[in-house]
Structures are given as structure tokens and as C-alpha cells.
Nucleic acid binder design. Structure first.
Lengths: 87, 87
DNA sequence: CATCTTGGTAAGTCGTAACTTACCGAGGTG
DNA sequence: CACCTCGGTAAGTTACGACTTACCAAGATG
């Protein structure tokens, strides 16, 4: 779903065609993604085109980076302890 | 859950104490995270210590980066089209 | 070796996420 | 302005994820 949206602006109906679920189901998925700040939609005449929101992706990346940092810190602490024992 | 594990190596029971769920529930969560490659566990005497797997985090970041790139690409294509129309 | 601690697994319950069909409103088109 | 396409919303069902209790295996400890 998200991967399809990432390929470029797509309409709801178009997405439904490429997925094994109904159009309303797609609509509901998109609402969740939109609420999560991961996609943006804009009206294009009769239809609505959805695309990925770079800011959402960036936010998610930042969140992951936090874990990355904490993991490294934890490693550092563990290494220190090991050193103490050896010392 | 994941945030607690990120703070450093923790035992299953210790996690359960800090969470509003039972120990088996924690165990099951950890199995999912482990299957997803996001955490690693190692036996420590009687207990098992869990910690975040940096490789899993890196993989997830890489995956996100893909969306980031595709989004930028889509933007580039859109910009080109707009240019054509203006030209 | 009896017993305690620790953690994983099994089985079952329960809440809710994900889907369906049916319906409605808005925008395009003859 | 009748009619089509497109998409969101409502209501209902159904499958599944998250939890519980009960049980079992493995390691520590007297």
C-alpha cells in the first residue's frame, strides 16, 4: 500500500485496482496513514491524489535514530563495565 | 516495550515489572521483535537478556530511506511535467 | 537432589482492526 | 439537468492480535 503511494501521486481507485482489497478499504487505510502524517492528499478535479509526506518519513527516521543512539550508548556502558571488571 | 529494551540489556521479568502486562505477554512480544530481527537475546545464567539489534534498526532505516528517495523522485518527475506544460 | 527462580509454550478469551456492502455527496460531461 | 465517475462514511461481520492462566523445562542454590 505504502509502497504504491511512494511511487508517485495515485488516485484511490487506481490503488484499489492494484490491491486485493475494495476501494472503501483503501480509503480507510489512507485515512489512517493521513492521520499518522505519512501521506498527503490533494483534490485533482474529480479525484484525490495521494502521495507520501516527506516530513512524516523524516519524523519516523528521527525516531528510529533515537533507538540507534540509545543502543550505542548501552553498548558503551556495557563496554565500560567490562573494562572495570578487567581493571 | 521497544523503548525499554533500547535502554540496555534487560531480563524478561524485569521488563514485565515495568509494563502493565504479564510476563508471558512480554515473552510473546519479544519473540515477535526477535523474529523481526529488531532485538537479540543471550542467556545470562538463569535469565535471558534482551537488547536492540542495531542491524535491524539499520535495515528499517534503509527501508525508510527507500521511500524517501522514491518520494523525491516522484517530486522530480512532477516538477518536470509542470515545466513541460509551462514550456 | 529437593526446591526456587526464570522464562518459554499451550490453550482459550476478548477486543478491535480490517474488511465487506450499501449509501451518499461532489465534481465532470453529454 | 440527467447521468456518470470518483471517493468518503456508516453499519455490520469476521479474522486475528494481545492478553490471561496453567503448565513445563532449565539453570541456580541450599
Amino acid at each position: 500500500m505504502f509502497e504504491l503511494v511512494a511511487e508517485g501521486p495515485v488516485s484511490v481507485g487506481n490503488l484499489a485496482l492494484q490491491l486485493p482489497i475494495s476501494r472503501p478499504a483503501v480509503s480507510q487505510h489512507l485515512r489512517v496513514l493521513k492521520d499518522a502524517g505519512l501521506v498527503i492528499d490533494r483534490p485533482e478535479g474529480n479525484r484525490r491524489l495521494y502521495r507520501v509526506d516527506p516530513r512524516g518519513i523524516a519524523e519516523l527516521r528521527a525516531y528510529l535514530d533515537q533507538f540507534w543512539d540509545e543502543t550505542l550508548e548501552a553498548f558503551a556502558r556495557a563496554a565500560e563495565h567490562a573494562h572495570e571488571e578487567t581493571t
